[in-house]
Design a protein around this nucleic acid. Structure first.
Lengths: 358, 358
DNA sequence: AGTGGTTACTCAATCGTTATCGTAATAAGG
DNA sequence: CCTTATTACGATAACGATTGAGTAACCACT
């Protein structure tokens, strides 16, 4: 482990000078070009790596230059959507590189597997100010109040979650509404809902709310709802859909809305199992536009969320907050978009097909 | 921010005593039950949180009690498989709770988005010994030598990667072999391969190798190979499969092996686009057994990897290494398993169907 | 009473960086 | 030639926790 003092010795200067040179931060102290070079050369020659523990201890977190993205337990299949979020963050950081070059932002997607109780672990990270910014996504609503009190000093951007803090969001209730209105518009009167039973996710609750509102507004009944228990979503949706499909003839739904795409494909299989055709006998609409959605047979109609753009924006906001270029809270809402494919509308076929494979 | 000295003042004792009490680690110094209680009470009353920076600085990383799982760039769709890995790690830690209670292991799934160059960022984490153990998965082969030299002092377990270091692995070449032999056994003579072109993943390379060996052994030609470029796997596999399917009649493959499930469903659509039936005209086999695989129409035959069990084992090994209960390297190999579904074998239908939905 | 042995602590040095304050050396001004 | 700026740097005290060496108090035993 090579220290500043080692470099100082090598370069024939003092520790202070080395510190000032290596962390090229604004300092009242001016260093001549000659010594700067000597220090840099020595550091390179010795293979210096700053000791973050020491740096953080001394400067009490001001210099951590780290953004953390925390994702809450439970680690369910939505994790696959997270890759889209991370990609968005990365691209944005890449784009802002000039801005960042002197700041060395590190993206750490820290999936703290915190349940409510062990959210205290997060505290261990937060209190000593390990990081300068926090991007929180996918927490259960229960954690909200905890987070509120937890981190007053660190800028936080909530992702896909309404909050008094800064947030980047989609109108989740609109998501449910879009799906419901689409199906109603196609003439469906008995529309079933499949949703994950035990999720504290606010987005899920809002989607369901939006769906119910749209149905109520159209004067339709809300009784066709089946929760999918457990985390093995596709399998449990398969079972849940069964309870809807096995109702007596006149009461069986003619369309099903599932609040995510894995649920949707579970339901699709339940439909096929019974010899029913999609979308002729039953239309299916999912949510999220997962990678596999467009490749189902028939391709799955779903509500697309611009996760990458949202993540990029969240990153920008977070950095703005960190450098106090804006005052919190900053709220931003992104539109979701219904992607009509053949699982709900036979006419969608050719057009969307070609479009999505390009 | 409350310090040890604050607690000491409150409890009417010294900083040293407080330190010894709060970190209940073996110490030559004995503390009376009375003071221990006083200290604990004071700490609780003041809401003490240890300053990790100070702790780490002083004890040079011995006490970080943190395991990091690093996942390499590129952040492709395989991230969805990662949730299975994390789940495995979590469950194992849960099961070992007794062992861990005094150690406070924190799981941080740190997705360092490192490319080869910025792997230096990892260095920043590693050098000051931020963590006590590293579980590396999904790095490109290029990073290997870098990692070798990087972290001599921290126990590392490689996941799904052969290495002189400790590893938990599947026989990836067997994965390719299983798929190929299955198709050969079904009587196919012209078997196509679809694989991601630009992945440095060792597992991918081995799968391809195993597939080629099996074909060569059976005296079959290897010319039906189509790389899927880019990271939008399903879409690119769709295109890649096209080049195989549009060959003249006698040269078109009668089966396709895709080295992951997203590629497979892309290929399946290319097949359907051409009015061909699965598995009658073309059989398809994928890899990984993604959540959606069993819910395709027809359900996708694929090679299942016991990722959760592997992760659990990797966790155990990592902890054993950390506490020096075993000597590195420890190598462990898990068997992969072909899951036959209807996309390759029409007879598989009913049986597997029922089995997988339970 | 003096020696040895426990028990229950406390002191003070230390980890590597940073930031404040001080100062030597040179330049500029009168 | 002496004073005052200016430039360039060095010495040193933190940051908060850990740890080995030291010590005070008490008891037992000869």
């Amino acid at each position: 482990m090579v220290r500043l003092s080692d470099i100082a010795a090598q370069a024939g200067t003092s520790v202070s000078t080395v510190s000032i040179v290596l962390s090229d931060r604004p300092s009242p102290v001016r260093i001549s070009e000659a010594t700067r070079q000597a220090v840099v050369d020595a550091a390179r020659a010795l293979g210096y790596t700053p000791n973050l523990a020491a740096r953080r201890l001394r400067s009490n977190g001001d210099q951590t230059r780290t953004i953390v993205i925390a994702i809450a337990y439970p680690l369910d299949s939505r994790l696959s959507l997270i890759s889209r979020v991370v990609r968005g963050v990365q691209r944005q950081l890449q784009a802002m590189r000039d801005d960042l070059v002197s700041l060395r932002v590190t993206v750490q997607l820290t999936i703290e597997t915190f349940e409510l109780g062990s959210l205290d672990q997060l505290r261990g990270l937060v209190e000593p100010l390990w990081f300068n910014g926090l991007l929180v996504t996918n927490t259960s609503t229960a954690d909200d109040t905890y987070l509120e009190t937890l981190v007053p000093s660190v800028p936080i951007v909530m992702f896909q979650r309404q909050s008094p803090r800064s947030s980047v969001n989609t109108d989740s209730s609109m998501v449910g509404q879009l799906a419901a209105e689409h199906l109603i518009g196609l003439g469906h009167r008995r529309i079933g809902l499949i949703y994950p039973s035990a999720t504290g996710s606010q987005a899920q609750a809002l989607r369901i709310g939006g769906y119910r509102d749209a149905l109520a507004l159209a004067g339709l009944s809300l009784e066709l709802e089946a929760p999918a228990t457990g985390t093995n979503w596709a399998a449990n949706a398969h079972a849940a859909a069964g309870t809807l499909l096995d109702r007596p003839a006149g009461e069986r739904p003619t369309a099903i809305f599932a609040t995510n795409d894995l649920l949707a494909i579970g339901a699709m299989r339940a439909i096929r199992d019974r010899g029913l055709r999609i979308p002729d006998d039953l239309a299916v609409v999912g949510c999220d536009d997962a990678e596999f959605a467009a490749y189902q047979d028939p391709p799955l109609t779903t509500v697309h969320l611009p996760l990458e753009e949202m993540a990029a924006r969240a990153t920008t906001i977070l950095l703005d907050l960190i450098y106090q270029r804006v005052e919190p809270p900053v709220h931003e809402m992104f539109p979701s978009r219904l992607v009509v494919r053949r699982s709900s509308d036979p006419r969608a076929g050719a057009v969307t097909e070609r479009g999505s494979s390009s």
